[in-house]
Design a protein around this nucleic acid. Structure first.
Lengths: 209, 209
DNA sequence: AGGGTTTCATATTGATCGCTATGAATCATG
DNA sequence: CATGATTCATAGCGATCAATATGAAACCCT
């Protein structure tokens, strides 16, 4: 059942006539712009250059294709985890997440906003499992940032009285809101200033480190 | 063509067998929870207790029903405009918008989140006009807040160097993000702390007023 | 070349979408 | 009660939805 076996040995039978990775990229762009339910199979076949039966053979069904597109979206060179892990301070982690979001939401070759933030904000009752899958990924990023903040409270970078939940939640809320602003047409330059304004809410240092 | 004439005089013909306002309220709740394209006509007929032909006779088509539901959503006793107009300071206006949003997004008898923020964040190409209508309403609220901020910069409540665009944009972004947090299940108490955290970004007073 | 295997393109499935044609039912009026 | 006006419920419209049945086409191996 492995459709992407580890060994790229030439398999028997008629070979695939399309680039699976390129097709997945096109699907991701469509889901990014139009959301999960706003993207139809005929939209996908047209953009991917692949007929419906081939899509189902290669990716399963629409639901699994979407989830794989989300994984691809979240598995770029820079991820939320890598930003948080690579930041010297919790403040740098938050600022890094915000500025990476601004850059990602206003790319010239990608739809505006965030796939994770907009693909299933609203959906029919039939797509609730998809919505929850995205909510879990959003919550995971927030949890990672909260952990980094708690660590900063222990080292003294942040005051011990800091509300880690609210601080992480505020950063996440701004990121989600930046996605909406980008979708509504705001330029990268304005979003950058909004992100910097959000960082003005960051608490002053605790005991000197 | 007036389907809601000013005079409630008894009209000729068979009377309406349903409460138009109550039906509109049910439609609003459905659009609130499932969005514009996530709510089907059969969903609406079931919740409103009205058959499809009666809906079309009373409201036009799905698009106009949705826009009327949005108007109803935005025309409660407290509106963004009334909060901004009733606030003594720009800071109070922003804080008032944030706390009213938290309350509205976590009502016990209403769906979580904001109808304006979630109904058409993502949609198919066919619903772009609906999306733009909501974007315009979002932009209107942000513009009203920005005007209030500019006024505060003139009176000295805020420093003259204040970035009014970014300050208003930050408040709007947080409001949009609070809607997502509410949809993802966060409690009102946490959202309140996030809103207060966001207000920590508010600039210090300019010259003493 | 021929058998085995996999993917291909074509055409179609049943379900649901937004919307409406049709005629009976219910009102005010004469 | 008869007439005109309006809304009612039933049933169905064409279009599109996600997903598939079918058989030919393209590859590896012997």
């Amino acid at each position: 059942m492995n459709h992407a076996d580890t060994k790229p040995s030439r398999r028997i039978g008629r070979p695939l006539s399309f680039d699976r990775d390129a097709a997945l990229h096109q699907a991701m762009l469509l889901f990014w712009r139009y959301g999960y339910e706003g993207t139809s199979l005929s939209d996908l076949t047209a953009a991917m250059g692949v007929t419906a039966p081939s899509i189902y053979a290669a990716f399963g069904d629409k639901r699994r294709l979407f989830l794989e597109a989300v994984d691809r979206y979240l598995s770029g060179p820079v991820t939320a985890k890598s930003i948080i892990a690579g930041a010297a301070t919790a403040r740098e982690a938050a600022a890094g997440l915000l500025h990476a979001s601004v850059a990602g939401f206003t790319g010239a070759d990608t739809p505006p906003g965030c796939l994770l933030a907009s693909a299933t904000i609203s959906c029919s009752a039939a797509a609730m499992d998809i919505q929850q899958a995205l909510a879990a990924r959003r919550g995971g990023i927030e949890a990672d940032l909260r952990v980094r903040i708690l660590k900063a409270m222990e080292t003294g970078e942040l005051p011990a009285r800091t509300d880690a939940d609210a601080l992480a939640g505020h950063v996440m809320a701004v990121i989600q809101g930046l996605s909406t602003l980008a979708r509504d047409g705001d330029a990268r330059e304005k979003l950058t200033r909004v992100a910097e304004m959000a960082m003005a809410a960051w608490p002053e240092a605790g005991r000197p480190g």
